[in-house]
């Protein structure tokens, strides 16, 4: 039981390693990658934008109530920006996308597996791993920081809306205040770490999808397990990444 589980982990790790190797080796599946960038990236925009906006509004309201206790309402934009940019934006978008993208990839590849589409690809002399997995991982790695940036933006937009309803603060002032305490070391590492999230989401989901067995039932399972596994792995990795970032940017 444990042995087989460990074997599974080892296979998944080999799979991830292979993704890394194949991703940098030409020829690249440019068109397919773009297609996934559309499917995974562009089509996630409404979800991320809406979620970011809502998170911004809610965070702003929460920080207002606690900051007001100290008479520090002036720090609300800055506080929101720090919270959003450093952690909430990357993590929330990571988790949301592990739901949307992870489930999508798991189900899609699972279905392709059980309907022999993967075999069919191989049969027409296409490297299914590069064509199906690497393209998705690359698209996901590219999409995550972009979507996180979008979430940061709509989050701050939401924060501004919540703020302007109460204080009527102009948007320019809000964003200037919000960026007051932000350093490059807040924005860049936090945003770039989402590439790791993207890699985890797409790789885990692809691995589970490609290894789907037992027909339609297996497809559903692959989808669910993709979300669960990538979410957990993402949260755990986040802890390590945050520690690492703090180590590099003390």
């Amino acid at each position: 039981m444990i042995v087989s589980w460990l074997e599974g982990v080892a296979r998944a790790a080999r799979f991830a390693g292979r993704v890394l190797v194949e991703a940098v080796r030409p020829p690249f599946e440019g068109r397919e990658t773009l297609r996934h960038l559309y499917e995974l990236g562009v089509r996630s925009v409404p979800l991320i934008a809406a979620a970011g906006f809502a998170v911004g509004v809610v965070l702003s309201m929460h920080t207002r109530s606690s900051m007001a206790r100290f008479g520090a309402e002036a720090l609300i934009p800055a506080g929101l920006a720090i919270v959003l940019i450093r952690e909430t934006g990357p993590l929330v978008s990571g988790l949301l996308l592990s739901g949307r993208i992870g489930a999508g990839i798991g189900a899609e590849l699972g279905a392709m597996k059980v309907t022999e589409q993967i075999d069919a690809l191989e049969a027409v002399a296409v490297d299914s791993f590069r064509y199906l997995v690497v393209t998705r991982v690359v698209a996901c790695v590219v999409a995550l920081p972009l979507l996180t940036t979008l979430m940061n933006f709509t989050g701050m937009l939401g924060g501004w809306v919540a703020e302007s309803i109460i204080t009527g603060m102009p948007i320019g002032t809000y964003f200037r205040q919000a960026f007051q305490p932000i350093q490059f070391s807040d924005l860049i590492p936090a945003t770039l770490k989402t590439t790791v999230f993207g890699f985890i989401i797409a790789t885990v989901a692809s691995y589970l999808g490609v290894n789907t067995t037992r027909g339609t039932e297996g497809v559903g399972q692959a989808s669910t397990r993709s979300v669960v596994a990538s979410s957990i792995l993402l949260i755990a990795t986040n802890v390590l990444l945050v520690r690492l970032i703090q180590f590099v940017y003390p």
């Binding site: 075999d119 049969a123 027409v124 002399a125």
Partner: peptide
């Protein structure tokens, strides 16, 4: 290897049991 195998495969065609059309 993968490249040689791909070349050999281009000489072959395969009709799958359920056609296995790419549904996307």
């Amino acid at each position: 290897g993968p490249r040689e195998l791909a070349r050999v495969r281009q000489r072959m065609g395969m009709l799958f049991q359920h056609a296995a059309l790419f549904d996307s």
